[in-house]
Design a protein around this nucleic acid. Sequence first.
DNA 1: GTCTATATGAAGATAGAC
DNA 2: GTCTATCTTCATATAGAC
Lengths: 215, 215
Amino acid sequence: MSINRRLAATTANLLPEHKPPGSPGQILEAALKLFAERGYASASVRDVAAASGLKPATIYAHYPSKEHILAELCRIGHEEQNRGVRTAVLNNGADPCAQIVAYVRAHVGMHTAFPMLAVVANAELHVLSAELGAATFALRQQSEQLLADIIQRGLDQGVFNVPNAWLAVAAIGGMGLRVAYWYSPEYHLEAREVAETYAEFALRILACRHRPSEP
Amino acid sequence: MSINRRLAATTANLLPEHKPPGSPGQILEAALKLFAERGYASASVRDVAAASGLKPATIYAHYPSKEHILAELCRIGHEEQNRGVRTAVLNNGADPCAQIVAYVRAHVGMHTAFPMLAVVANAELHVLSAELGAATFALRQQSEQLLADIIQRGLDQGVFNVPNAWLAVAAIGGMGLRVAYWYSPEYHLEAREVAETYAEFALRILACRHRPSEP
DNA sequence: GTCTATATGAAGATAGAC
DNA sequence: GTCTATCTTCATATAGAC
């Protein structure tokens, strides 16, 4: 990836369900791109307005402050990730190995499908006040706890084997998180391949005793 | 880790060899802490001056611009990482497994020993102009290439087995990078244990055929 | 809802005295 | 080397007309 680029992706995308109609949606998507590429602090309300085809003052008719726009993006990003991993795990039975595969597929899949959302939600979360960030922070912890629970269950059942359970959580979560920075649809690499390979890596990290059967 | 904290570490540290004597060193260390905790764009020259016990104008007697301070920190961080992994690999013979262990130990060790430096060097590198960032960017690519070369050699020799070599580089590099964000010396977790466990995870990702003997 | 105009503060950086 | 004082630009946000 070239220098001067924070992430490889070049387009901001939001699911229709996360993009409100009209100007609020335009603002959100413009802010997503700017916050992801330049960082929250370096992208001004003026920039967001210009990219939305609006004047700066109009932004404040839809969002009380710049921080509220960021809070919304962080919430959407973490909700998408949380919803994805929870649904995936719930749909994949009781086998810890199958659950890990489902979790990592969903986790990595979210980071390839919405790289800008993932970068903003992760890298800028610390900017939010305790009040504005609380909901997002809770989602984040819930997702991490889900991964920790799967791993602990696998350890208890003797199908996983790691020196330190928390480090496995950190390693598997962390490697997935980084995908958002380098992944670009333009690469000769299918998102599906990335997700499958990372799921395999996760099973290897956990020394999983068997490979789950294909769904 | 609490919300509103970008990283868990609370103290900025620079090796004596990287910290120039007098005010330049004070400025560098103060900027390191502020840039790591708040982000480059959110930490002002006034903040750096106050934290260094100087007045804002005095900063400019030592560094031509705020961006030059960041460039220096990015360079130091990447030099430390690059020097560490290169030395480690060179000191550990020709076995790809032993080389991976050496690389990951050094890589993770740098991120636990200098978390603020790692966070700034990685998260803020994109801010630098092509001119100011070129040297750092080259170091970064060299370190990544070293890891890629070790992995490729292991694949060629048949001691590693991965579906995609580049994804193994990204996963192993990425999981180590994230350590800088959550690691804190105050945790009940020795830096040594983190490095050893991540080295083991890397071997597992690569499906290494044997465990290298202890040095 | 969107605009023009503006209030208010803080940013990076410089001039020039000591 | 460090300071005081300041230039200039840009930031977030608001007031009030249409």
